[in-house]
């Protein structure tokens, strides 16, 4: 079994097996978020714009992890992250009635080189922190409780991603890194 405590973004065999199956269960996972039926109905145009921005962020993260996968072929960590963010984008699509096909190109361009570089795990940590902060900020701007509920479930998962990435970095005992999100929300 591969160690989970080294500097490599490789995860355990169990993780790899699970992540290879993860893509097909995104819809199921969304149904586990909660019983509230959220839809585009009742969302203002401002709220739809905010959700579209959040969706673009998720799609950019998915594509950035695909870039990392080109460096670390078959990395379970990057596969896991890429699949998760694709699921998040799809969840927002279902919530807002938006097609999940328009990534945030500015974000993707800004981080494309970095996510292929040597510090890519730390870059991923920073991206996850920023994404979680962005979604928490978004919750305060959404009037629809169902939309807030879905975004909260994404923010919770991304907060956990940060801890996993910190641990993969070998800094699982750095409480400033694992427990504190010092990132600022990405501005729309």
């Amino acid at each position: 079994m591969t160690s989970t405590r080294d500097d490599s973004p490789q995860l355990t065999d169990i993780d790899l097996r699970r992540k290879l199956l993860a893509g097909g269960t995104a819809a199921l996972a969304l149904t586990m978020v909660g019983g509230r039926a959220a839809s585009a109905a009742g969302l203002s145009s401002d709220e739809l714009d905010l959700l579209k921005f959040a969706q673009g962020l998720e799609l950019a993260l998915h594509d950035l992890y695909d870039e990392a996968l080109q460096i670390d072929n078959n990395s379970a960590a990057w596969t896991a992250m890429a699949n998760s963010h694709e699921s998040f984008a799809q969840a927002i699509a279902g919530l807002a009635g938006l097609s999940a096909n328009e990534r945030n190109d500015e974000l993707f361009s800004n981080y494309r080189v970095a996510i292929r570089g040597e510090d890519r795990v730390k870059v991923a940590y920073d991206l996850e922190s920023a994404a979680a902060a962005t979604h928490i900020d978004l919750i305060g701007k959404l009037s629809d409780a169902g939309a807030a509920e879905v975004i909260a479930s994404i923010a919770a998962a991304e907060s956990r991603h940060c801890v996993v990435l910190a641990d993969v970095l070998g800094k699982g005992n750095d409480l400033g890194l694992t427990l504190t999100n010092s990132a600022q929300p990405i501005e729309a």
Binding site: T4, T12, R18, A22, T25, V163
Partner: peptide, 28 residues
Amino acid sequence: GASAARRSALLAAQSSASEFGYFGPEIN
């Protein structure tokens, strides 16, 4: 809630990640 999620994840990573990995079976 995000802070609580981080604390939960930290404890899980510290206690069981080396044996069982980071990702739970419910993901699939």
